[in-house]
């Protein structure tokens, strides 16, 4: 008993050191902008930077639309598969896992070649079109997480019984999805949404290659040209990620518990 607990503590302590030292170092570094004393100058500069505000706002808007696309795409599909077509489940699961295997840079490379201004579907011919393509690309990146979250949510409720109960009372499909299924998987959908937000907000590759003024390329640009602001931005980004994950954790407490899996 005793020796195993010692090794457990040691492992935990080493892990904690590896993860906390960079965070502490980054925070410390971000305070060093003013010579000889600690200050929040770097943060003041960052928050005061118009490009920070613009790119952050742009990425937030893109993230919101991405979430909408993801929800519209995933919820009806996952629901329909649970209800009617469990046989194609492995195929759909495989497809949702593909973005973990095909690197984002390859996907966006494909977009650039397929949807250029001379193609039949010239997404890239206009700025709006490029924005839409970026949202679609992000929805693709978030697909594995969104699908998993929603599917887990659907597993805990009995989709078929709920649907049949609604049909007995004469509800149509729109009513069933909007009034019955969505509220029951709302927690799962929100978890997926916040995870999507965490992934999308600082994404660099797609935004950069599609030449959109997003937060990720802005971060990269600051990193290449400034000393202390990047550290402040890293701290801010970590806080945003932390915030998203905390919301997911809090949401999980409200999730309906499945009968066969009470934990």
């Amino acid at each position: 008993m005793k020796p195993s607990r010692f090794w457990a503590w040691l492992t935990f302590a080493l892990g904690a050191a590896y993860f906390f030292i960079p965070l502490i170092a980054t925070f410390e570094f971000s305070l060093r902008m003013r010579r000889g004393e600690y200050s929040f100058d770097a943060y003041r500069v960052v928050f005061g930077d118009v490009r920070f505000q613009e790119t952050f706002a742009y990425s937030t808007i893109i993230a919101c639309f991405t979430i909408v696309i993801g929800v519209l795409l995933v919820v009806p599909t996952a629901y329909w598969i649970r209800l009617r077509m469990p046989q194609i489940r492995p195929v759909v699961e495989f497809i949702t896992l593909l973005p973990l295997i095909i690197p984002a840079i390859v996907i966006v490379f494909g977009y650039i070649r397929m949807y250029g201004s001379n193609s039949p579907l010239p997404f890239l011919a206009t700025t709006r079109g490029t924005d839409v393509l970026l949202m679609i690309g992000y929805a693709t990146l978030a697909l594995p997480y969104m699908y998993r979250a929603v599917d887990t949510g659907l597993r805990t409720i009995d989709v078929r019984t709920l649907t049949e109960a609604a049909q007995v009372h004469g509800a149509g499909w729109t009513t069933i999805i909007v009034r019955i299924i969505l509220p029951n998987v709302l927690i799962a959908v929100l978890s997926g949404a916040f995870l999507t937000f965490a992934i999308v907000i600082g994404e660099f590759t797609m935004a950069s290659l599609l030449n959109r003024p997003a937060f990720g390329p802005y971060l990269q640009n600051i990193g290449a040209n400034r000393a202390y602001e990047p550290a402040a931005l890293a701290v801010i980004s970590f806080a945003i990620t932390w915030g998203c994950m905390s919301v997911i954790q809090v949401l999980a407490r409200f999730a309906p518990k499945s009968a066969n899996n009470p934990n």
Binding site: P22, T26, S30, G202, L219, P230, A231, L233, A234, S237
Partner: peptide
């Protein structure tokens, strides 16, 4: 992504 690189540069 990018912020992680900043953190390790600062470390």
């Amino acid at each position: 992504g990018v912020p992680l690189a900043f953190a390790f540069l600062a470390t």
